[in-house]
Simulated assay, not measured.
Amino acid sequence: MSLRIKINDILWIKGLGNYSILILKNGRTYTSSRTLKVFELLLKEHGFIRPSKFSLVNLAYVIMPSKTPVSILQLKPTLEKIPVSRRRHAEIANLLLQYNS
């Protein structure tokens, strides 16, 4: 069975080994047998960033942080908090600045 989901409806994607869980803005979740790496390659040009090994986040739903370096990304509708890995602090802060301007 094939499921069609609009890219703009995806808040973030959580990686679980060889599976990924898509969390939508309406609160629904879907499990996919695709890895997070596959989704990263597909969605990078659509405004998604990878703040850590275990997540991929839609920049359109990020509440812009007031401090740098960024250690947590908060998402608008759910107020979900996504941790940012130490190694990606600078990269994520740069991407947020570029997206904001």
Results as ranks from 00 to 15, higher is better:
residue 3 L to H: 08
residue 4 R to P: 04
residue 5 I to A: 12
residue 5 I to K: 13
residue 6 K to F: 06
residue 7 I to W: 10
residue 7 I to M: 09
residue 8 N to T: 09
residue 9 D to A: 10
residue 9 D to M: 03
residue 9 D to Q: 13
residue 10 I to K: 06
residue 13 I to R: 07
residue 14 K to M: 02
residue 15 G to A: 13
residue 17 G to Q: 14
residue 17 G to C: 13
residue 19 Y to C: 03
residue 20 S to V: 04
residue 21 I to Q: 15
residue 21 I to P: 05
residue 22 L to F: 12
residue 22 L to I: 15
residue 22 L to H: 08
residue 23 I to P: 00
residue 23 I to Q: 08
residue 24 L to G: 03
residue 24 L to R: 13
residue 25 K to V: 09
residue 26 N to K: 09
residue 28 R to C: 07
residue 28 R to W: 01
residue 30 Y to N: 13
residue 31 T to C: 14
residue 32 S to E: 09
residue 33 S to H: 05
residue 34 R to W: 00
residue 35 T to C: 03
residue 35 T to H: 01
residue 36 L to W: 03
residue 36 L to T: 09
residue 36 L to N: 11
residue 37 K to G: 10
residue 37 K to M: 08
residue 38 V to H: 12
residue 38 V to G: 04
residue 39 F to H: 03
residue 40 E to Q: 15
residue 42 L to W: 02
residue 44 K to F: 01
residue 46 H to G: 04
residue 46 H to L: 02
residue 46 H to R: 02
residue 46 H to M: 01
residue 46 H to D: 06
residue 47 G to R: 02
residue 47 G to H: 03
residue 48 F to C: 05
residue 49 I to T: 00
residue 49 I to P: 05
residue 50 R to C: 02
residue 50 R to I: 01
residue 51 P to W: 03
residue 52 S to G: 01
residue 53 K to W: 00
residue 53 K to A: 05
residue 54 F to E: 00
residue 55 S to N: 05
residue 55 S to L: 00
residue 55 S to Y: 10
residue 56 L to H: 09
residue 59 L to G: 04
residue 60 A to V: 07
residue 60 A to R: 15
residue 60 A to I: 09
residue 60 A to P: 01
residue 61 Y to L: 08
residue 61 Y to F: 15
residue 61 Y to Q: 07
residue 63 I to G: 06
residue 63 I to A: 11
residue 64 M to Y: 14
residue 64 M to P: 08
residue 66 S to C: 00
residue 67 K to M: 07
residue 67 K to N: 12
residue 67 K to H: 12
residue 68 T to I: 06
residue 70 V to E: 11
residue 70 V to S: 13
residue 71 S to Q: 14
residue 72 I to S: 11
residue 72 I to L: 13
residue 74 Q to A: 08
residue 75 L to F: 07
residue 76 K to Y: 03
residue 76 K to A: 11
residue 77 P to R: 13
residue 77 P to S: 13
residue 78 T to S: 11
residue 81 K to G: 06
residue 82 I to K: 06
residue 82 I to E: 08
residue 82 I to S: 10
residue 83 P to S: 03
residue 83 P to Y: 03
residue 84 V to Y: 15
residue 84 V to P: 15
residue 85 S to Y: 11
residue 85 S to L: 12
residue 86 R to E: 13
residue 86 R to S: 15
residue 87 R to T: 02
residue 87 R to Q: 06
residue 87 R to C: 02
residue 88 R to D: 04
residue 89 H to W: 10
residue 89 H to D: 01
residue 90 A to G: 06
residue 91 E to F: 15
residue 94 N to M: 12
residue 95 L to Y: 06
residue 95 L to N: 02
